[in-house]
Amino acid sequence: MKQDIRTLFTEEDDLKALPKNHRSEFADKLKEQSKPKQNPYTWLSAAAILIVSLTIGFNVMDMEAKPELNQVSPIIAQVEAVEATYLKDIETEWQSFITIADDELLVARFKKKLDELNADYKEISLQFREDSNNIFIIEALVENLQTRLQILKDIQKHIKILNQKDEQYENTI
């Protein structure tokens, strides 16, 4: 079975002739393979972005709709801070008032009024504990404190004007 293998190659060449455009076909196939593959997860990631966005949006809206969860504490703290400041100011003004007022009936009447306002305040404070987001209750609390402070300031101003008259009157005599 000895044979010259060179003759075999000669026969192969005769059987399979290369097409004329084999070069360009090869180049086209090569080009096609070099294109990036289409990612099958593109739409999935888009949907995920949409879901995450909607979830965040919904949660933010829901948190807004439940202010008690994230608002109660700051409001209570704020009101307590304001209350402490007012009470300190009220005490200062009261001491100043009893120093300059020489009318015992006036002092007694103001004491009665301040006690009434204090009793009202305690009642409103109980409501505030139950419903700390109610602006009308907060308003009532602050107005109560303001009233106490303001009536003390007003009466002292009034007495000062009256006393100025006294000094002026005495000077003219």
Partner: peptide
Amino acid sequence: KFSMYRFYQSETITGTLDLR
């Protein structure tokens, strides 16, 4: 129930506290 609409605008609260 004493239920005015919820109110949590911090500026309004501050306004209330700032009335003096």
